[in-house]
Design a protein around this nucleic acid. Sequence first.
DNA 1: GCCAATATGTAATAATATAACATTTTGAGA
DNA 2: TCTCAAAATGTTATATTATTACATATTGGC
Lengths: 141, 141
Amino acid sequence: MSNDHKHDHRHDLSTLTRNQAFVFETLQNAKAPMSAYTILDELRDDGFRAPLQVYRALDKLVEMGLVHRLESLNAFVACDHPEGDPHGAIAFAICEDCGQVDEFADDEIVARLGNWAKTKKFRLDKTIIELRGTCETCANA
Amino acid sequence: MSNDHKHDHRHDLSTLTRNQAFVFETLQNAKAPMSAYTILDELRDDGFRAPLQVYRALDKLVEMGLVHRLESLNAFVACDHPEGDPHGAIAFAICEDCGQVDEFADDEIVARLGNWAKTKKFRLDKTIIELRGTCETCANA
DNA sequence: GCCAATATGTAATAATATAACATTTTGAGA
DNA sequence: TCTCAAAATGTTATATTATTACATATTGGC
């Protein structure tokens, strides 16, 4: 059985620490995924000086489910889901052109992967689904 | 429509260049995914001296469909499929413990993702599905 | 207030990946 | 076979992403 549900959005934003809040806000304002180092550069003026400050905040935010890491980009996005709406595995569609990310869930896919895991007795911790391509807008441009 | 089928196993192994053959053989003999730098270290004795020699061979091998890149590991594995058996998107189940990778296909999942893309008019170039967890053997150990 | 857990600051370094440029090899067609 | 363009290779330097190690500060339950 998957435990992707482990990290719900139980976390009140007011419980974020100073650094976590800065990083989260930066990601929320971003139009596309950001690398840790890009975030760092944006936060120099707010007293950030080292990568670890960003990585540590990101670790927590991902753990809380407020931020997602895009493995195929080595970058991060703020979660798109309505506050407090917990979810299982999510798929990301990433436009190579404009960088925009569309986040969606498909229960049937999650179920099929869970089933495969069950059959193989594979203990599933984390599911990564990323689609790379071109969004409608960029395809028409 | 996905064009994940673009890179079939049309490529005769005899068409591999010297460097490609070395890298491919190294991956085929490996029990777990290898990073580019680990491959480089294994091939020092065969005249490899720089990362680019490995990355360039990997690029071609991935293009040919003989090797897969695991995005969540920044590592590479030799394709597991019988020679000449073309395939669409593949899922990888990666054991965090022993590193072994189980490669599988699920047409229904591919279809659903393709459908999502069609609906959103997203031009799908590449599908990444990676399951992180613990394999049966390691779970019992 | 005490103290343990958590968060932060900072420097150094490790791990992964690409840019830029020179040279060599390969293979299709004249 | 010769030619020449495409592909592959060699090499140095550098960019990008991520972690280790250690010191200090803050927070919150008791």
